[in-house]
Design a protein around this nucleic acid. Structure first.
Lengths: 195, 195
DNA sequence: CGCGACGTTGATTTGCCTCAACGATTGTGG
DNA sequence: CCACAATCGTTGAGGCAAATCAACGTCGCG
């Protein structure tokens, strides 16, 4: 539908200049994709050829360790990018899973189409360089927070950053994001309020 | 000294083509810097203007949390880059400290000089994009490993990756890299060998 | 020499996990 | 439309990896 592209183009126009031709090229490169709740955009171990821009709905990016436990890296909502950036650019298998938390609409682009876009629109390449840097910054902060703070501190920070998060994703997903079990988060909340 | 530059130029030539002029520009942009053992290249909270290439010696990159505990992110040896990449490119204060573990020689470049280099040598900008991506990949792997594996597993993996590490850095720094206390690492090793 | 840096060991505590059970809500197929 | 299953959150009892606090031996160096 036309509206999906409008959302992407508006988003890009907020960050860079786009000519009419650029806009057309971008619309040709990005393809609409619908995911039903619980469907995957890509899975751990398979090539991560697609990178998506969320039009509506939401997803979780997560890792499954060798014991089978899931670890949520982040949630993605409207106007977020989803992809294993590391794997996408290195053309290696993804370490992550991207799964829809509800019925979700995306615009997706594959590696070749994106490379071609970059060649034709250098300013777009520069924008994505900045996006990657932001991603790196966010990941580093998340790492430092994980190794130096308690689960409770991380929970408070998450609520500050995303006050609506508890309405958007189920509690056991939040626990997974925090790196603890659902039981632990439940107990933590009880103890917090009891004080 | 001339040898420092030779190391950098050889390193770069392994990864990209460099003309004579490029080589000169690079030699002008990068300045030699010596650090005595325990001296800092930059500190947490201050602007991270410098990025360094290690000629000899070694450094540790670490974060100090609000309780005052240190957390090593990585060690840097000959031919490694040191810098808070996230902060450097975003021109924000560094979240990290870079401290020499022994007397160390570097070539350092500041943000402006590097930007100018990028303008004059586009291929160099491309190379650093790849370096950032590799860095992102490494950080993501480290994060996933930290949240999903035991300290013992992480220790074994470290030894596989860097068999010489125990000779190069003191044990309490390795504990810090693993995210545990020196006492815990000491105990861990005893229990491992007792079996 | 004496001091600081480093590693080790012991006793105790703690934050979170593990396993198990259960109630409430949602959703779905017969 | 109801019945049953699945999903989700909660609570309890017990366990474990690593932290904490404290003491001590060794080495190397200024």
């Amino acid at each position: 539908m036309q509206d999906s592209y409008a959302l992407l183009i508006d988003y890009l126009k907020k960050k860079m200049k786009l000519s009419e031709e650029d806009t057309e090229l971008i619309q040709k490169a990005y393809q609409p994709k619908s995911l039903k709740k619980k469907e995957y955009l890509f899975r751990q171990g398979s090539g991560c050829d697609d990178e998506g821009f969320v039009i509506s709905g939401s997803l979780r990016m997560f890792y499954i360790d060798k014991r089978g436990l899931e670890h949520v890296l982040y949630f993605a909502f409207k106007e977020w990018w989803v992809g294993d950036l590391a794997a996408f650019y290195q053309r290696s298998p993804s370490q992550l899973n991207a799964q829809a938390l509800e019925d979700t609409e995306l615009l997706v682009v594959n590696y070749e189409a994106k490379e071609e876009l970059f060649r034709k629109i250098p300013a777009l390449e520069r924008l994505f360089r900045i996006i990657i840097q932001k991603h790196l910054t966010a990941l580093q902060s998340r790492f430092l927070s994980t190794i130096s703070e308690s689960a409770e501190e991380r929970y408070h920070k998450l609520l500050e950053r995303s006050p609506q998060i508890e309405l958007l994703v189920p509690q056991h997903q939040i626990a997974s994001y925090l790196g603890i079990l659902p039981e632990s988060l439940s107990r933590m909340k009880r103890l917090m309020h009891k004080k």
